[in-house]
Design a protein around this nucleic acid. Structure first.
Lengths: 220, 220
DNA sequence: AAAAACCTTGACTGGTTGGTCAGGTCTGTT
DNA sequence: AACAGACCTGACCAACCAGTCAAGGTTTTT
């Protein structure tokens, strides 16, 4: 996300504000992921970004507002990432790319995924509107694509929704249950393990819907 | 779980105690699932089971003790349910049974699954010992079974762990993300939908590891 | 029937939390 | 240099929380 950030020059007023807001959001994301909305305290977030608590309230009027921004930010990343889904021609390539990208995101945005999972698990009290509008639209368009594949006989007949849920579940599991996986793994997953897991997920799902999984596990 | 419970007769002292404890545990499970550990309040749990707050502290000395019991109870159900895994001869039957059972549990113990997910997602601060001992042992024994299948050429070569994670993720998703699914579904899943989803999950995973998924989707 | 053990509960408390605010500092402009 | 507006923060507060407790009720035992 951040590309050039070695020695932070002062920058303009607006730039500094943005930077501070991002600093707070990053800290908040970590704390919310670790403790949930109710368990997280503004004090903890303040300490996580080495700012006085009152300062957070200067940038974000309330805990709930701050939380909402964190969730919104993640949601945006999710959606953008998932765009690679539609740009591909064949089901094989589209699905393989989508799954691979989602596995990447699980690794890179572990905290974000957790916050999202938390929010949805608790009934999406804060971002229900996102579920009902943005996510619904997005889902419907992907469902239509998959349905076309089914109708054309490209893949085995499945209700597209069960397939999508399966992809979401499997990939996000590696972020949301990272702690469990790491406990069973005696430590964080290595690069090779990530690659192997990604390959296995791709292979099982592709083969599972009647596509040739091939041996191209290492392909990106 | 409870088989004879129409008109509750007074029962013995111990029976009544047990019943009250279960009442509290059920309420706590719901509230913890809805709000997380930090977000849940003893007052809310008390209201959910129509008991004065002080009463909860008579049966469970602290909020954390109560929470631990809730998590332990779910964990036990998980493990017992998963026993059907080893008692079957062929991979097809074993996996189909296991997945089907796990889908059932996602439907019946939605709250429990959420509490477990929450706990693990936050780094298992309270039940880390369970992860490190009980779950690890259980997992290793199942991994051994799957590895034998692979070695015998019964299924495609996969690291058993990625397969297990995939099954856990996919099935538990229907409990943990029930709210999201129901939003996209415009309401709770029907019996037929549950059956279809279960069939699809079975089919994709079985076919995905090189087994004949057959048309036996409706079989139990 | 009386004693003992167990259960129930309203009222209370010490500590913590989200949020406020007045007064201060820094930065750019005139 | 003087002014304005954005930024920062220590100290504070009302609300709320987990947990306590003493007093009263109920059941079982003696």
């Amino acid at each position: 996300m951040s590309q050039t950030e070695g020695a932070e020059k002062p920058g303009t007023r607006a730039e500094m504000r943005e930077e501070t807001e991002r600093l707070i959001l990053d800290a908040a994301e970590r704390v919310f992921a670790d403790s949930g909305f109710g368990g997280a305290t503004m004090q903890a977030i303040a300490e996580a970004c080495a700012l006085p608590k009152a300062n957070l309230h200067y940038y974000f009027s309330s805990k709930e507002k701050l939380y909402r921004q964190v969730v919104e930010r993640i949601f945006t990343v999710w959606l953008e990432a998932a765009d690679s889904f539609e740009t591909s021609a064949s089901p094989e390539v589209a699905l393989r790319r989508y799954i691979t990208r989602k596995m990447q995101l699980s690794r890179e945005y572990r905290h974000g995924s957790k916050v999202w999972a938390n929010e949805v698990m608790h009934g999406a009290p804060i971002i229900q509107d996102y579920l009902e509008i943005t996510l619904r639209d997005w889902t419907e368009s992907r469902v239509a694509v998959i349905r076309r594949w089914v109708d054309a006989g490209d893949i085995q007949p499945v209700d597209p929704r069960w397939l999508l849920y399966m992809i979401w579940a499997t990939t996000q599991h590696y972020a949301d249950f990272a702690h469990q996986i790491e406990t069973l793994n005696n430590g964080p997953m290595s690069d090779a393990q990530w690659q192997e897991a990604t390959g296995t997920v791709c292979a099982i799902i592709l083969r599972g819907i009647g596509l040739d999984a091939g041996d191209a596990v290492a392909e990106t």
